[in-house]
Amino acid sequence: MKIVVIGGTGMIGSKLVSMLGEQGHEAVAASPNTGVNTLTGEGLAEVLAGASVVIDVSNSPSFEDAAVLEFFETSTRNLLAAESAAGVGHHVVLSVVGAERPPERGYFRAKMAQESLIEKSSIPFSIVHATQFFEFARGIADEATDGGTVRIAPVLFQPIAGEDVARAVARVAVGTPLNGRIEIGGPEQGRMDEFFRNALAAWGDSREVVTDPHAHYFGAEVDERSLVPDDGAVLGDISYAEWLSRAGR
Score class of each variant (00 low, 15 high):
1 M>Q: 14
2 K>N: 08
2 K>P: 13
7 G>W: 00
8 G>H: 02
10 G>T: 03
11 M>A: 12
12 I>Q: 00
16 L>G: 07
21 G>H: 05
22 E>N: 13
25 H>G: 14
27 A>I: 11
27 A>D: 12
30 A>I: 08
31 S>Q: 02
35 G>R: 00
37 N>I: 06
40 T>G: 13
41 G>H: 03
42 E>L: 11
42 E>K: 12
43 G>E: 08
47 V>F: 00
51 A>H: 04
53 V>W: 03
61 P>E: 02
62 S>F: 01
64 E>F: 09
66 A>C: 02
73 E>F: 01
75 S>H: 05
75 S>T: 04
76 T>L: 03
82 A>G: 10
84 S>L: 13
86 A>W: 07
89 G>I: 07
93 V>N: 05
94 L>C: 00
94 L>Q: 05
98 G>F: 01
101 R>A: 09
107 Y>P: 10
109 R>S: 04
109 R>M: 03
112 M>A: 07
113 A>D: 10
116 S>N: 09
118 I>C: 04
119 E>W: 00
120 K>A: 14
120 K>C: 05
121 S>K: 03
124 P>Y: 07
129 H>A: 02
131 T>D: 01
131 T>S: 06
132 Q>W: 06
132 Q>P: 11
133 F>M: 12
134 F>L: 08
138 R>Y: 09
140 I>G: 08
142 D>K: 07
143 E>V: 12
146 D>P: 08
147 G>A: 13
148 G>S: 15
152 I>P: 09
159 P>N: 04
160 I>N: 05
161 A>M: 11
161 A>S: 14
165 V>N: 02
168 A>R: 00
174 V>H: 07
175 G>A: 09
179 N>K: 04
181 R>G: 09
182 I>T: 13
185 G>V: 13
186 G>I: 05
187 P>A: 07
192 M>D: 04
193 D>F: 02
194 E>N: 12
194 E>M: 12
195 F>W: 14
197 R>K: 15
198 N>Q: 15
199 A>T: 15
200 L>R: 12
208 E>A: 15
211 T>E: 14
211 T>D: 12
218 F>V: 12
223 D>A: 14
227 L>H: 04
231 D>I: 12
236 G>V: 05
240 Y>C: 10
241 A>L: 09
246 R>K: 14
247 A>P: 07
